[in-house]
Design a protein around this nucleic acid. Sequence first.
DNA 1: AATTCTTACAACCGCTTTCGG
DNA 2: ACCGAAAGCGGTTGTAAGAAT
Length: 257
Amino acid sequence: MGRAPCCEKMGLKRGPWTAEEDMTLVAHIEQHGHSNWRALPKQAGLLRCGKSCRLRWINYLRPDIKRGNFTCEEEEAIIQLHAMIGNRWSTIAARLPGRTDNEIKNVWHTHLKKRLESSSKTSGQAAPKLKAKKPAVAATASALEGPTSEPASSSPGQSLSMSPEQSLSTSSATGYSMASSLENTGSSSSESEEFQIDDSFWSETLAMSVDSSGSGMETGDTFGVDSASTSSSSNDEMDFWVTLFMQASDIESLSQI
DNA sequence: AATTCTTACAACCGCTTTCGG
DNA sequence: ACCGAAAGCGGTTGTAAGAAT
């Protein structure tokens, strides 16, 4: 089937967004919504393709975006979730209110991954501290951030309600809690191949877990997701499995004592 | 002070999935 | 049931800013 080109490239602007474009996009979405991304740039008078507009809105201009450095809890959550479900950035992002899949992906590739790699090399030793991150660059957005925008440095406890005990007790310094606890259970799989769950697993398990989100576990609370609570049922189902894995990890780590 | 290297992040690309006719 | 359009997603790239030399 003939796939539609991602966008007509003729005359459309690319590259970094200007503050003016941002304001135009925000104003248009606030007024008309974004029911049709394809048509939106034309309606708003932007020389961008709809895809670019959508990305800019989702990753940067949305009012509920939380900017600023990731908290330890958030990083820990990313590491754990990634160990469980792999590169499903949008799913991970759904667990971290205010964070986008793109942002999480970037954080993973830029330092979480490196941190894990270096700590696995120096197994047992604490991962070397990464140098302080530069303050979040919000060049154009800073001009847009109104009084309603969340401060860049929201309180750690606020972003994730997962308690330190919950998040840290299950994890070694490397963050490979799930992997290590599974290995400890006798799983012979190596670190690289542990927890390779294909999509069929998730589709099957999610299909089986209908209504399982009400199983008494505070799944939403696990990561303090208020947005997730209003999202699709598939997120609830994912909640269940995420929580299940984390609890299993807890049990395993307890059994080691 | 100038240059080079490294890091962080915004944005793009292309594939897959979903939806409507 | 089929097809095409649109949206969603993850991988990758480009580049600005900071650090190191």
